[in-house]
Design a protein around this nucleic acid. Structure first.
Lengths: 140, 140
DNA sequence: TTTCTTATTGATAAGTGTTATCATTAATGA
DNA sequence: TCATTAATGATAACACTTATCAATAAGAAA
Protein backbone atom coordinates (compact mmCIF):
# COMPACT_ATOMS: atom_id res chain seq x y z
CA UNK A 1 0.00 0.00 0.00
CA UNK A 2 1.56 3.22 -1.13
CA UNK A 3 -0.44 6.01 0.41
CA UNK A 4 -3.91 6.55 1.79
CA UNK A 5 -6.37 8.01 -0.64
CA UNK A 6 -9.19 10.20 0.46
CA UNK A 7 -12.35 8.73 -1.00
CA UNK A 8 -15.85 10.12 -0.84
CA UNK A 9 -16.93 7.00 1.03
CA UNK A 10 -14.27 7.41 3.69
CA UNK A 11 -15.27 11.02 4.21
CA UNK A 12 -18.92 10.05 4.49
CA UNK A 13 -18.22 7.28 7.00
CA UNK A 14 -16.05 9.47 9.18
CA UNK A 15 -18.50 12.37 8.98
CA UNK A 16 -21.32 10.05 9.99
CA UNK A 17 -19.31 8.69 12.91
CA UNK A 18 -18.35 12.12 14.18
CA UNK A 19 -21.79 13.62 13.69
CA UNK A 20 -23.49 11.23 16.08
CA UNK A 21 -22.86 10.47 19.72
CA UNK A 22 -24.44 7.06 20.03
CA UNK A 23 -21.31 5.09 19.15
CA UNK A 24 -22.90 3.23 16.28
CA UNK A 25 -22.05 -0.23 15.03
CA UNK A 26 -20.73 -0.75 11.52
CA UNK A 27 -24.16 -1.97 10.52
CA UNK A 28 -25.83 1.16 11.90
CA UNK A 29 -23.48 3.42 9.98
CA UNK A 30 -24.05 1.40 6.85
CA UNK A 31 -27.79 1.78 7.31
CA UNK A 32 -27.56 5.52 7.99
CA UNK A 33 -25.57 6.11 4.81
CA UNK A 34 -27.90 4.06 2.63
CA UNK A 35 -30.03 6.99 1.41
CA UNK A 36 -26.99 8.84 0.07
CA UNK A 37 -24.90 5.76 -0.65
CA UNK A 38 -27.23 3.00 -1.78
CA UNK A 39 -24.36 1.02 -3.29
CA UNK A 40 -21.87 1.27 -0.44
CA UNK A 41 -20.78 -2.14 0.75
CA UNK A 42 -20.84 -3.08 4.42
CA UNK A 43 -17.29 -4.30 3.96
CA UNK A 44 -16.29 -0.78 3.02
CA UNK A 45 -17.73 0.48 6.29
CA UNK A 46 -15.80 -2.11 8.30
CA UNK A 47 -12.61 -1.42 6.36
CA UNK A 48 -12.78 2.31 6.88
CA UNK A 49 -13.75 2.11 10.52
CA UNK A 50 -10.77 -0.14 11.10
CA UNK A 51 -8.52 2.23 9.28
CA UNK A 52 -9.84 5.25 11.16
CA UNK A 53 -9.06 3.45 14.41
CA UNK A 54 -5.59 2.54 13.21
CA UNK A 55 -4.99 6.15 12.28
CA UNK A 56 -6.09 7.32 15.71
CA UNK A 57 -9.10 9.22 14.41
CA UNK A 58 -11.58 6.88 16.09
CA UNK A 59 -11.68 4.14 18.65
CA UNK A 60 -13.35 0.77 18.84
CA UNK A 61 -15.29 -0.01 21.97
CA UNK A 62 -15.64 -3.53 23.25
CA UNK A 63 -13.82 -6.81 23.39
CA UNK A 64 -11.83 -8.73 20.85
CA UNK A 65 -13.00 -12.20 19.98
CA UNK A 66 -14.87 -14.84 21.96
CA UNK A 67 -16.67 -14.44 25.26
CA UNK A 68 -14.77 -15.47 28.36
CA UNK A 69 -16.21 -16.91 31.53
CA UNK A 70 -15.23 -16.59 35.17
CA UNK A 71 -16.13 -19.19 37.78
CA UNK A 72 -15.94 -16.48 40.40
CA UNK A 73 -19.20 -14.58 40.15
CA UNK A 74 -18.15 -11.92 42.65
CA UNK A 75 -17.21 -8.65 40.98
CA UNK A 76 -13.46 -8.22 40.74
CA UNK A 77 -10.95 -6.62 38.42
CA UNK A 78 -9.38 -8.16 35.36
CA UNK A 79 -6.37 -7.48 33.24
CA UNK A 80 -6.60 -8.07 29.53
CA UNK A 81 -3.20 -8.93 28.13
CA UNK A 82 -2.46 -6.94 25.00
CA UNK A 83 -0.05 -9.58 23.80
CA UNK A 84 -1.77 -12.95 24.26
CA UNK A 85 -5.31 -11.68 24.61
CA UNK A 86 -5.83 -13.61 27.85
CA UNK A 87 -7.84 -12.27 30.79
CA UNK A 88 -6.45 -12.52 34.30
CA UNK A 89 -7.58 -11.75 37.81
CA UNK A 90 -6.16 -8.79 39.65
CA UNK A 91 -6.08 -8.30 43.38
CA UNK A 92 -9.09 -6.04 43.73
CA UNK A 93 -8.06 -2.45 44.34
CA UNK A 94 -10.16 -0.74 47.01
CA UNK A 95 -13.54 0.24 45.63
CA UNK A 96 -13.40 3.69 44.11
CA UNK A 97 -16.31 5.25 45.92
CA UNK A 98 -15.96 8.56 44.14
CA UNK A 99 -16.13 7.44 40.55
CA UNK A 100 -19.84 6.73 40.40
CA UNK A 101 -21.12 9.84 42.19
CA UNK A 102 -18.79 11.99 40.12
CA UNK A 103 -19.83 10.38 36.86
CA UNK A 104 -23.51 10.56 37.81
CA UNK A 105 -23.26 14.20 38.89
CA UNK A 106 -24.43 15.85 35.70
CA UNK A 107 -25.72 12.83 33.85
CA UNK A 108 -29.46 12.58 33.21
CA UNK A 109 -29.36 8.78 33.16
CA UNK A 110 -28.91 6.34 36.01
CA UNK A 111 -25.61 4.75 36.94
CA UNK A 112 -25.89 1.50 38.84
CA UNK A 113 -22.31 0.28 38.81
CA UNK A 114 -18.93 0.32 37.17
CA UNK A 115 -15.96 -1.87 36.49
CA UNK A 116 -12.29 -1.14 36.23
CA UNK A 117 -10.84 -2.71 33.10
CA UNK A 118 -7.06 -2.90 33.13
CA UNK A 119 -4.85 -3.65 30.19
CA UNK A 120 -1.16 -4.38 29.88
CA UNK A 121 0.94 -7.54 29.92
CA UNK A 122 0.28 -10.71 31.86
CA UNK A 123 3.22 -12.20 33.82
CA UNK A 124 4.00 -14.74 31.12
CA UNK A 125 4.05 -12.24 28.31
CA UNK A 126 6.03 -9.77 30.38
CA UNK A 127 8.74 -12.39 30.85
CA UNK A 128 8.61 -13.38 27.21
CA UNK A 129 9.02 -9.72 26.27
CA UNK A 130 12.11 -9.53 28.48
CA UNK A 131 13.47 -12.71 26.89
CA UNK A 132 12.88 -11.30 23.45
CA UNK A 133 14.84 -8.19 24.28
CA UNK A 134 17.68 -10.27 25.75
CA UNK A 135 17.99 -12.31 22.56
CA UNK A 136 17.40 -9.37 20.27
CA UNK A 137 20.18 -9.26 17.71
CA UNK A 138 18.83 -6.44 15.62
CA UNK A 139 21.74 -4.20 16.47
CA UNK A 140 24.53 -6.77 16.48
CA UNK B 1 -38.97 -26.02 32.37
CA UNK B 2 -39.82 -27.65 35.67
CA UNK B 3 -36.63 -27.81 37.70
CA UNK B 4 -32.91 -27.79 37.07
CA UNK B 5 -31.38 -31.25 36.90
CA UNK B 6 -27.83 -31.87 37.92
CA UNK B 7 -26.15 -33.65 35.05
CA UNK B 8 -22.66 -35.07 34.96
CA UNK B 9 -21.87 -32.68 32.12
CA UNK B 10 -22.96 -29.64 34.06
CA UNK B 11 -20.84 -30.69 37.02
CA UNK B 12 -17.84 -31.25 34.78
CA UNK B 13 -18.21 -27.87 33.08
CA UNK B 14 -18.57 -25.98 36.32
CA UNK B 15 -15.69 -27.90 37.92
CA UNK B 16 -13.50 -27.09 34.94
CA UNK B 17 -14.45 -23.43 35.08
CA UNK B 18 -13.76 -23.13 38.79
CA UNK B 19 -10.55 -25.13 38.68
CA UNK B 20 -8.80 -22.73 36.35
CA UNK B 21 -8.04 -19.05 36.62
CA UNK B 22 -7.55 -18.13 33.00
CA UNK B 23 -11.18 -17.27 32.31
CA UNK B 24 -11.53 -19.70 29.44
CA UNK B 25 -13.78 -19.42 26.43
CA UNK B 26 -16.52 -21.95 25.78
CA UNK B 27 -14.32 -23.50 23.14
CA UNK B 28 -11.41 -23.84 25.57
CA UNK B 29 -13.55 -25.57 28.14
CA UNK B 30 -14.93 -27.86 25.48
CA UNK B 31 -11.41 -28.74 24.45
CA UNK B 32 -10.23 -29.31 28.01
CA UNK B 33 -13.08 -31.72 28.69
CA UNK B 34 -12.56 -33.70 25.49
CA UNK B 35 -10.37 -36.43 27.04
CA UNK B 36 -13.02 -37.29 29.63
CA UNK B 37 -16.01 -36.24 27.55
CA UNK B 38 -15.24 -37.06 23.92
CA UNK B 39 -18.91 -36.85 22.97
CA UNK B 40 -19.83 -33.63 24.76
CA UNK B 41 -21.27 -31.07 22.38
CA UNK B 42 -19.99 -27.52 22.23
CA UNK B 43 -23.61 -26.43 22.45
CA UNK B 44 -23.84 -28.13 25.83
CA UNK B 45 -20.90 -26.08 27.04
CA UNK B 46 -22.49 -22.84 25.87
CA UNK B 47 -25.84 -23.80 27.36
CA UNK B 48 -24.42 -24.64 30.75
CA UNK B 49 -22.15 -21.62 30.91
CA UNK B 50 -25.14 -19.44 30.18
CA UNK B 51 -27.13 -21.18 32.86
CA UNK B 52 -24.35 -20.90 35.40
CA UNK B 53 -24.20 -17.17 34.76
CA UNK B 54 -27.96 -16.86 35.09
CA UNK B 55 -27.80 -18.70 38.37
CA UNK B 56 -25.11 -16.38 39.65
CA UNK B 57 -22.49 -19.10 39.91
CA UNK B 58 -20.32 -17.61 37.16
CA UNK B 59 -19.99 -14.42 35.16
CA UNK B 60 -19.45 -13.64 31.54
CA UNK B 61 -16.70 -11.19 30.70
CA UNK B 62 -16.84 -8.97 27.68
CA UNK B 63 -19.26 -7.16 25.52
CA UNK B 64 -22.66 -8.09 24.21
CA UNK B 65 -23.10 -8.14 20.48
CA UNK B 66 -21.48 -6.07 17.77
CA UNK B 67 -18.48 -3.78 18.04
CA UNK B 68 -19.21 -0.11 18.52
CA UNK B 69 -17.17 2.80 17.28
CA UNK B 70 -16.46 6.24 18.66
CA UNK B 71 -15.46 9.18 16.50
CA UNK B 72 -13.74 10.72 19.52
CA UNK B 73 -10.42 8.91 19.81
CA UNK B 74 -9.51 10.57 23.11
CA UNK B 75 -9.97 8.26 26.08
CA UNK B 76 -13.17 8.97 27.94
CA UNK B 77 -15.76 7.07 29.93
CA UNK B 78 -18.81 5.31 28.59
CA UNK B 79 -22.05 4.08 30.00
CA UNK B 80 -23.53 0.88 28.65
CA UNK B 81 -27.29 0.93 29.01
CA UNK B 82 -28.58 -2.33 30.46
CA UNK B 83 -31.95 -1.80 28.84
CA UNK B 84 -31.32 -0.77 25.26
CA UNK B 85 -27.71 -1.92 24.98
CA UNK B 86 -26.55 1.46 23.72
CA UNK B 87 -23.24 3.05 24.66
CA UNK B 88 -23.12 6.68 25.71
CA UNK B 89 -20.50 9.23 26.64
CA UNK B 90 -20.07 10.30 30.22
CA UNK B 91 -18.49 13.50 31.43
CA UNK B 92 -15.05 12.16 32.25
CA UNK B 93 -14.58 11.77 35.97
CA UNK B 94 -11.16 12.92 37.20
CA UNK B 95 -8.51 10.36 36.42
CA UNK B 96 -8.21 7.85 39.23
CA UNK B 97 -4.48 8.04 39.79
CA UNK B 98 -4.51 5.44 42.52
CA UNK B 99 -6.18 2.55 40.75
CA UNK B 100 -3.23 1.54 38.58
CA UNK B 101 -0.49 1.71 41.20
CA UNK B 102 -2.69 -0.17 43.64
CA UNK B 103 -3.60 -2.83 41.14
CA UNK B 104 0.01 -3.16 40.01
CA UNK B 105 1.32 -3.36 43.56
CA UNK B 106 1.46 -7.12 43.93
CA UNK B 107 0.93 -8.13 40.35
CA UNK B 108 3.82 -9.75 38.49
CA UNK B 109 2.61 -8.51 35.12
CA UNK B 110 2.66 -5.00 33.70
CA UNK B 111 -0.26 -2.63 33.80
CA UNK B 112 -0.22 0.07 31.16
CA UNK B 113 -3.68 1.52 31.52
CA UNK B 114 -7.25 1.10 32.60
CA UNK B 115 -10.75 2.14 31.73
CA UNK B 116 -13.79 2.81 33.83
CA UNK B 117 -16.79 0.99 32.40
CA UNK B 118 -20.09 2.22 33.81
CA UNK B 119 -23.43 0.50 33.44
CA UNK B 120 -26.95 1.57 34.24
CA UNK B 121 -29.71 3.29 32.28
CA UNK B 122 -29.33 5.90 29.58
CA UNK B 123 -31.53 9.02 29.85
CA UNK B 124 -34.08 7.69 27.37
CA UNK B 125 -34.47 4.34 29.07
CA UNK B 126 -34.61 5.96 32.49
CA UNK B 127 -37.55 8.05 31.34
CA UNK B 128 -39.20 5.10 29.68
CA UNK B 129 -38.82 3.15 32.91
CA UNK B 130 -40.57 5.96 34.77
CA UNK B 131 -43.35 6.01 32.16
CA UNK B 132 -43.76 2.26 32.49
CA UNK B 133 -44.20 2.56 36.20
CA UNK B 134 -46.71 5.37 35.79
CA UNK B 135 -48.85 3.28 33.44
CA UNK B 136 -48.33 0.06 35.35
CA UNK B 137 -51.73 -1.53 36.00
CA UNK B 138 -50.48 -4.73 37.53
CA UNK B 139 -52.07 -3.94 40.84
CA UNK B 140 -55.28 -2.32 39.65
C1' DT C 1 -37.40 -51.00 41.35
C1' DT C 2 -39.99 -49.70 37.60
C1' DT C 3 -42.44 -46.21 35.23
C1' DC C 4 -43.40 -41.64 33.75
C1' DT C 5 -42.41 -36.93 32.71
C1' DT C 6 -39.62 -33.74 30.67
C1' DA C 7 -35.10 -31.23 31.27
C1' DT C 8 -30.94 -32.01 29.01
C1' DT C 9 -28.00 -33.88 25.68
C1' DG C 10 -25.47 -34.48 21.14
C1' DA C 11 -25.48 -33.38 16.44
C1' DT C 12 -26.07 -30.03 13.41
C1' DA C 13 -28.41 -26.29 11.01
C1' DA C 14 -29.06 -21.54 11.25
C1' DG C 15 -27.92 -16.93 12.63
C1' DT C 16 -24.94 -12.94 13.54
C1' DG C 17 -20.93 -10.22 13.18
C1' DT C 18 -16.50 -9.69 10.90
C1' DT C 19 -12.81 -10.48 7.63
C1' DA C 20 -10.88 -12.11 3.13
C1' DT C 21 -11.07 -12.48 -1.91
C1' DC C 22 -11.19 -10.54 -6.38
C1' DA C 23 -12.49 -8.18 -10.49
C1' DT C 24 -13.63 -3.36 -11.29
C1' DT C 25 -13.32 1.50 -10.28
C1' DA C 26 -11.31 5.74 -9.29
C1' DA C 27 -7.75 8.74 -6.57
C1' DT C 28 -3.29 10.47 -7.03
C1' DG C 29 1.14 11.59 -9.29
C1' DA C 30 3.80 11.83 -13.57
C1' DT D 1 -3.99 12.72 -20.24
C1' DC D 2 -2.20 8.44 -18.80
C1' DA D 3 -0.41 4.94 -15.64
C1' DT D 4 -0.34 3.06 -11.20
C1' DT D 5 -2.53 0.91 -7.61
C1' DA D 6 -5.40 1.88 -3.32
C1' DA D 7 -10.09 1.41 -2.58
C1' DT D 8 -14.57 -0.18 -3.76
C1' DG D 9 -18.69 -3.34 -4.21
C1' DA D 10 -20.24 -7.91 -4.19
C1' DT D 11 -19.91 -11.95 -2.05
C1' DA D 12 -17.72 -15.98 -0.12
C1' DA D 13 -15.54 -17.50 3.90
C1' DC D 14 -14.91 -17.47 8.66
C1' DA D 15 -15.60 -17.41 13.80
C1' DC D 16 -18.58 -17.38 17.46
C1' DT D 17 -23.14 -18.25 19.33
C1' DT D 18 -27.88 -19.78 19.41
C1' DA D 19 -31.85 -22.60 17.82
C1' DT D 20 -33.83 -27.04 16.43
C1' DC D 21 -34.96 -31.73 17.25
C1' DA D 22 -34.89 -36.61 18.05
C1' DA D 23 -32.78 -39.42 21.64
C1' DT D 24 -31.33 -39.76 26.38
C1' DA D 25 -31.40 -39.71 31.22
C1' DA D 26 -32.42 -37.15 35.87
C1' DG D 27 -35.72 -36.88 39.30
C1' DA D 28 -40.39 -37.73 41.14
C1' DA D 29 -44.00 -40.92 41.85
C1' DA D 30 -46.00 -45.49 42.00
Amino acid sequence: MEAKRMTRQREAIFAQLVSRSDHPTAEEIHEALKPDWPRMSLATVYRNLGQLCEGGRAQKLGRGAADRFDGNAAPHCHLTCERCGGVFDLPTPPADTEAEPQAAANYPGKITGHTLCFFGLCPNCLNRAADDRASDNTYL
